[in-house]
């Protein structure tokens, strides 16, 4: 059992590294403790800077490092694996009281967009079924499992920063990892494409026709032969890109 004096000394040093407040930290060499604060923040700034290079560039070094400082001071980092820690910055900025979110409305989306590239690149491997080229609508389909579907409100994937706030809309995007090269790619989708792929993942049959019916009926659109043909052609393109397969 730790004595209160021992655990208190540990808490004060830990708190100092986060906040810079050395009040009550008497049983340490005070001229040396800034080294710990410097070392801790070097790790935090390095990891967050590597995870969010676009955010850092847009905010500028000073604002980005202020964000890092406030995050580490105010947020209790939960992750034992430091490379997963950047995800916690998204939660911090998404807090409804976050001054950063109020000042930069695009920030939660930009952080998520940058984080997903890391998340998909590092997603734990899973065993895959044998995958085939799509040449028929009769076989069940399989979506590359290393992906995320998101809908951005800011066009941060295809427009310069200055146009983000003036071009608010719905921008569906698929972010996925190539099964062979492991490289992460971004695919702009139509609303139909986004809904179709979402439906394909959740549809237990994973068959083309039922997925198409469900997708279109959700949009109150009737199926036509032309739609079937164009959807199939689109799926074959996704197949070539390593996004959807036959199984």
């Amino acid at each position: 059992m730790l004595k209160e004096t021992t655990s208190l000394a540990q808490q004060k040093l830990a708190n100092y590294t986060r906040t810079g407040d050395s009040t009550g930290l008497t049983e340490a060499r005070l001229e040396r403790i800034p080294q710990y604060r410097r070392l801790v923040y070097n790790v935090i700034k390095d990891i967050l800077g590597q995870a969010f290079p676009i955010t850092k560039k847009i905010l500028g070094n000073e604002d980005f490092f202020n964000l890092c400082n406030d995050f580490f001071k105010e947020h209790n980092c939960k992750n034992t694996q430091v490379w997963k820690m950047p995800k916690e910055l998204i939660d911090y900025v998404n807090d409804e009281n976050s001054a950063y979110k109020l000042a930069h409305t695009f920030l939660p989306e930009l952080l998520l967009f940058e984080w997903l590239e890391i998340e998909i690149h590092t997603m734990t491997n899973i065993e895959l079924p044998k995958l085939y080229k799509i040449d028929s609508i009769a076989q069940p389909y399989f979506v590359n499992p290393y992906h995320k579907l998101i809908v951005l409100q800011h066009p941060l994937h295809n427009k310069p920063f200055k146009q983000w706030n003036t071009n608010l809309g719905q921008y569906p995007i698929l972010i996925y990892r190539n099964l062979r090269t492991h490289k992460v790619h971004f695919e702009e989708l139509s609303i139909f494409g986004y809904l179709f792929l979402s439906e394909l993942q959740s549809n237990s049959t994973r068959l083309f026709e039922s997925t198409l019916v469900n997708t279109l009926s959700a949009q109150n659109v009737a199926i036509t032969d032309a739609q079937i043909l164009s959807s199939l052609a689109w799926l074959k393109e996704l197949n070539k890109k390593g996004i959807v397969f036959s199984v």
């Binding site: 021992t6 830990a14 070392l39 801790v40 790790v43 990891i47 209790n76 430091v82 820690m85």
Partner: peptide
């Protein structure tokens, strides 16, 4: 400490 990871190594009191 205090349910927060610091990602660096702090000294334990020699007690």
């Amino acid at each position: 400490c205090d349910n927060a990871h610091l990602y660096d190594l702090l000294p334990i009191p020699f007690t």
